[in-house]
């Protein structure tokens, strides 16, 4: 267990380092671009006076590391923003302020996160069931016709962009068959039943695409395990093929599946941009696309940081889970 604790510790330190580097890269990329940063940050409709104010707010006259220091300070200790007339305090973690909407970025993101989590959590259940199920089935039926059919379907799933699947689903289910209304987000706390019905299609389209990856990974790692010597041992001791698959081959695949799930979950929280945009779900992704289109720089930077945080976290969790599931990793 000692080895595992050390591993977790190393991994957490690694994640912190990565996050720090990520924040530097993002800061440099966005705030050291050529052109008038204050103008871009403030947005296209700002008056020269406002632009001047923003330039001060961002400490544009200071050297780069001081500016970055201010940025970090805001993140950990909070920061004050003057909106011309009044001064507003932005409590830590302060990701800045949108000059176009006069809203704090942290608030904007916090309002969107529940939607993204609703989408991803539901989809996760489906992609796990569907993906792992398909993977197990095709590993079990390996070499037969049914496996080739499954492989072809999975490949098609990998090949189809999520917005194509979503579009087709929406048109067929909501448009032609009228089985469901066109999705509209309902808060879980308001009406859990409507919440689920409205999210069903987004869940399905996100899960269909992701489950293809899970199916491939499950199948590949199960086949890899089945080719290992210890499988031969259990066959030579009269263990039935079904037990070999269910107990030994599947166990060999769990570590990878758990890790892939953590990673997919992490990147989907912010990365389900396409699904959210397509179904008009007011999640993090859709907000980001909107911010990009209207060039609301503070929101973009804040969003990227938060999403990056989730992804790095998910990666660390994935590695730890992998190590827990396959203790040999720690020893290596």
């Amino acid at each position: 267990m000692n080895g595992l604790t050390g591993f977790v510790l190393r991994r957490v330190i690694g994640a912190v380092v990565t996050l720090f580097a990520l924040s530097v890269i993002i800061y440099v990329v966005f705030y050291v671009t050529p052109g008038n940063v204050a103008q871009i940050t403030c947005g296209p409709r700002c008056s020269p006076a406002q632009v001047h104010q923003v330039a001060q707010q961002l400490h544009l006259d200071d050297p780069l590391y001081v500016r970055y220091g201010h940025f970090l300070q805001g993140l950990f200790a909070g920061q004050d923003f003057s909106t011309g007339t009044s001064v507003e305090h932005c409590a830590a973690p302060c990701l800045g302020q949108s000059y176009q909407t006069d809203q704090q970025v942290t608030d904007i993101i916090l309002a969107k996160l529940p939607v993204s989590f609703s989408l991803v959590l539901g989809a996760m259940v489906i992609w796990l069931l569907l993906g792992v199920g398909t993977g197990v089935l095709s590993a079990w039926r390996r070499g037969r016709f049914s496996e080739r059919v499954l492989t072809a379907i999975t490949l098609a799933g990998v090949a189809t962009p999520v917005f194509v699947i979503g579009l087709v689903l929406m048109i067929v289910v909501c448009g032609e068959l009228q089985l469901l209304p066109f999705p509209q987000y309902v808060n879980f706390t308001d009406d859990p039943e409507q919440w689920a019905w409205n999210l069903l299609l987004p869940w399905l389209s996100l899960a269909l695409v992701e489950s293809a990856n899970f199916a491939r990974l499950t199948r590949a790692s199960m086949l890899e395990t089945l080719a290992e010597d210890h499988i031969r041992t259990f066959r030579a001791y009269g263990v039935s093929e079904r037990a070999v698959i269910a107990r030994h081959a599947l166990r060999g695949a769990t570590a990878s599946v758990i890790a892939l799930n953590a990673v997919t979950f992490g990147s989907a929280v912010g990365g389900a941009v396409l699904t959210e945009t397509l179904f008009g779900l007011p999640g993090v992704g859709q907000e980001l696309v909107h911010a990009v289109k209207v060039v609301d720089l503070p929101v973009v930077v804040g969003m990227v940081l938060v999403i990056g945080f989730f992804v790095v976290l998910a990666n660390a969790v994935a590695d730890v889970l992998y190590a827990v599931a396959d203790r040999r990793v720690v020893l290596a």
Partner: peptide, 18 residues
């Protein structure tokens, strides 16, 4: 298999489920 005739393999590490 295993009950009347049991087999011992060459590489003991890879012959057991890790």
């Amino acid at each position: 298999r295993g009950a009347k005739a049991a087999m011992v393999f060459q590489d003991p590490l890879s012959s057991l489920d890790p």
